[in-house]
Design a protein around this nucleic acid. Structure first.
Ligand SMILES: [Mn+2]
Ligand SMILES: [Mn+2]
Ligand SMILES: [Zn+2]
Ligand SMILES: [Zn+2]
Lengths: 141, 141
DNA sequence: ATGTAGATGCAAATGCATTGCATTTGCACT
DNA sequence: AGTGCAAATGCAATGCATTTGCATCTACAT
């Protein structure tokens, strides 16, 4: 995602444009998996485009309210992680050996949940699914 | 679960039996939903069978290693919660209004994941699913 | 009954996330 | 372009959940 595209995303959603916010959005856009606040922080430093940790937290709070990111727990550790929801609702396969997450292309529960809804007299508004296992790379060791 | 049943569970799994451990196991057994460490602590105090917080944390670590409890994140807040896995693999519907969780009787993803496994060259060993929505009680308000 | 490995309680430490406050900055309006 | 002000930022302090070090106690094998 270019600087311009990032700036557009912000403006379209009525979020004031700053160097820090552009930078964070671009990191999220480049990522292929959910990122922790800390790893966003590290990636920014590495790019010499450093942003204070609090600022990142506050920025993600804003993106969350606007529905622009999805927040989830890291399946192993105990941090929150974030993905641009522009990428759409998604789930991940997480390797319990190496910790790497890869995105699944589809959601394996949507249909099943439809049925569930009726039987439980519960209005379903969302769900989270995480799948664990051993990735191809770790299997071959 | 009686004191004796709790003691049995511990002995069968080679876990040294103490007043504290019996008490924690019994609380988990009585619970109909995942409990946070803190809520276990509170319930124990209320029963005049108080156990130190660290002890509860350490005990759950042991139960986790032995596979006797499942650990998950509280779907809303940011604490871990625990359920006896004697109750079997399970998922919960969580109300985003009142926070109450109710157990689903079956797992809506097992079959779907079987197919997934082949297509991703990923050996699946487990999964977590949380479903959100509005419960019957909150709907009628 | 005794010895010992392991369990407990308490306090301090850690890790992640949030908040208060002084300063800076974006941006709407001249 | 210049000005004003609300909102954003950095930094330090704080909050809350969880973990750890250590002295003491206890279960249980012998
Ligand atoms: Mn889904
Ligand atoms: Mn399941
Ligand atoms: Zn792996
Ligand atoms: Zn409810």
């Amino acid at each position: 995602m270019t600087k311009v595209q990032a700036a557009d995303l912000l403006r379209r959603n009525g979020i004031k444009k700053t160097r820090q916010r552009e930078a964070v959005v671009r990191i999220l856009a480049e990522a292929q998996a959910p990122l922790s606040v800390d790893s966003i922080h590290v990636r920014l430093r590495h790019k010499d485009d450093s942003v204070n940790l609090s600022t990142i937290y506050r920025m993600l709070e804003v993106l969350l309210e606007k529905g622009l990111v999805e927040q989830m727990h890291h399946p192993l550790g105990s941090k929150f992680t974030y993905v641009l929801s522009a990428y759409g609702h998604s789930h991940h396969l997480t390797c319990t050996r190496c910790g790497v997450s890869t995105r699944m292309d589809s959601c394996p529960v949507t249909t099943a949940l439809g049925q569930l809804e009726a039987s439980h007299n519960f209005h379903i508004t969302g769900h989270r699914l995480e799948v664990f296992g051993v990735c191809a790379a770790c299997k071959s060791k």
